[in-house]
Design a protein around this nucleic acid. Structure first.
Ligand SMILES: [Zn+2]
Ligand SMILES: [Zn+2]
Ligand SMILES: [Zn+2]
Ligand SMILES: [Zn+2]
Lengths: 152, 152
DNA sequence: AAATGAATGTTATAATATAACATAATTAAT
DNA sequence: ATTAATTATGTTATATTATAACATTCATTT
């Protein structure tokens, strides 16, 4: 996402993929939900709910908080976006349906956010949970710092 | 903390420890800050800021949101408590000054929360960050699920 | 065509957190 | 000791994030 060459194509591919997944799952990818996902994808970074609401109002002036939050809920539930807990923000998922335990690298400098997967981390996390007799349901792993680009 | 035999002693030890650390660091462990830390410790679980405010009001009726949030900030900055990002809540640190990268096991059923450390996790996290040329500053790792006690 | 359920519209408000400025208490400098 | 500077707290107001509750519209099924 960060290094995409043509972000418009990138967005369109994501929307088509979402459409396909929704069809498979038998859930409705309504105009509103599509618009919200598109707005989130438009950002190369994370977005805040109320910023999203402002954007949405430009398209449909009657949009209100529940309009946004319901769509966000749908998109989260179906794996098209993630909530970034430490920022109260939302980010497009770069590989829906393909992963379970991902983590985020959040650059405090350029506000970029990268979604990463790692077998290693998943394994260690599982072994830790097992060691504690804990039945894991959801993992939140958010790493804040300075990204590659901003270090140099 | 969860399995302490005498929570009053447990709280007192934590407060004395905090006092000592503050002296060492040359920061002020004021009456207010101590009260707030005590209130957080009183809970065997996590606490919400506004619940804390209600408790504080019983001691000092003039307490207001900034009263609580400032104390929380101090306690977080000095490592006596942690913020649980996925719950917008706060939890006492069970081993201040002794750790860097901890994680939390949060039981959705009994609302217990356990702070755990793991060399393994720290190592894997460091290697992942290195692999991504990422300069880690802060790690948020919160695992939600069902705890040992609640599974049985 | 009617009934059902899902999605959206709408109003209101809850829950979480901070900005900005005033005052008090502590510490440092004169 | 007195003043100045710094830090902490008090106070008012408001920003930000999120949901409850109920009405209406839309899509799907009968
Ligand atoms: Zn994802
Ligand atoms: Zn960066
Ligand atoms: Zn801790
Ligand atoms: Zn439990």
């Amino acid at each position: 996402m960060r290094n995409c060459k043509d972000h418009k194509t990138c967005i369109n591919e994501a929307l088509i993929k979402a459409e396909t997944i929704c069809k498979q799952k038998g859930v409705k990818f309504t105009k509103l939900r599509k618009q919200v996902l598109k707005l989130i994808w438009k950002s190369h970074s994370y977005v805040k709910a109320y910023d999203l609401l402002e954007e949405l109002k430009k398209i449909d002036s009657s949009a209100k908080p529940p309009t946004v939050y319901r769509s966000l809920d749908f998109l989260i539930d179906n794996g098209f976006i993630h909530k970034v807990q430490s920022l109260n923000a939302f980010v497009a998922c770069t590989h829906p349906q393909e992963h379970k335990e991902c983590y985020f690298l959040i650059c405090k400098n350029c506000k970029s956010i990268e979604e990463c997967c790692s077998e290693k981390i998943s394994k260690v996390m599982n072994s830790e949970a097992t060691r504690n007799n804990f039945n894991t349901n959801q993992v939140t792993l958010e790493i804040s710092g300075i990204c590659q680009e901003c270090i140099n």
